[in-house]
Design a protein around this nucleic acid. Structure first.
Lengths: 143, 143
DNA sequence: CTAAATTAAGACTAATTAGTCTGATATAGA
DNA sequence: TCTATATCAGACTAATTAGTCTTAATTTAG
């Protein structure tokens, strides 16, 4: 099992934050990204094509080409990326998998999970990728 | 994508809580369980065989047979079930999928996730299935 | 003792996710 | 214009997870 996000989604999160780390408008190629982040080349290519179609990224072909953010880094959150790749069902679904679990018809951990789920949501939206990238520039960080 | 636990695991959680709802030592057959919980018959059979081998359940063949908890309901938590089925890597892994993410070498959401992950852990261990079953007996609950 | 109900075991199929490959297209620069 | 470097598109393969089926073994009730 991958954690709460699919592998695709994890790769997308990593790579987009990495792009946010670049100077405004600067492009990075799949080749460089996959080398730095240790992601399979063709797999990331496919993921990025998807994100491009959805407007999160911009691409330029040819020598010196590559990908850059499709909008201001201040306007992109991790939530946007998760939404584009995995969808955001997790904001709705019951942890125990009860189809009928809801406020009216809760499972035994409904309330606890609701709080945690909100925490996850806020983790994903409370900072934009510009801020996240900034933090990850500090020495010791994983990027 | 299933949520944070695999479908197998969700089914296991539901079914074990359902067993905890029975009177001490009372057995329920796969047939009844799958009817009540809307789980595919043979799939649950396999899951339960697995949980039996691991000691979480006890089984009895033949007419009137079925499954019951393999130990006192007070001694079983949701964590035990997750551990048996999916494993508990989630207590370790980085949400963004960085292999090298750790306290020393954190990703940008490391701290937030650490807190949430602890919350999930405590959701799974803070109540045993006897307590959970008790709560789910109240009217309106999903079981 | 026999029949019916049940779990046990494991092979099998189906669906989803992960990952690879190939050929086409666009672009920059010599 | 030619060549090298990129992305683009989509078919393909591999691995994992979900789910099904069949046969055997065990147990109870009649």
């Amino acid at each position: 099992m991958s954690l709460i996000f699919s592998r695709q989604c994890e790769y997308a999160l990593q790579a987009v934050v990495f792009l946010a780390l670049q100077k405004e408008g600067e492009r990075v190629s799949i080749k460089d990204l996959t080398k730095k982040l240790d992601i399979p080349y063709h797999f990331l290519a496919k993921i990025f094509q998807d994100l491009s179609r959805k407007g999160l990224l911009e691409s330029l072909k040819g020598p010196g080409g590559g990908f850059s953010l499709g909008m201001a880094a201040r306007d992109i959150t991790l939530f946007h990326i998760v939404e584009a790749i995995d969808g955001v069902d997790f904001t709705q679904k019951c942890v125990m998998g009860f189809a009928e679990c809801s406020g009216k018809h809760p499972c035994a951990v409904h309330e606890k999970w609701a709080a945690l789920r909100d925490g996850i949501y806020s983790m994903l939206v409370s900072k934009d990728v510009a801020q996240l990238a900034m933090e990850m520039k500090k020495p010791g960080y994983a990027l």
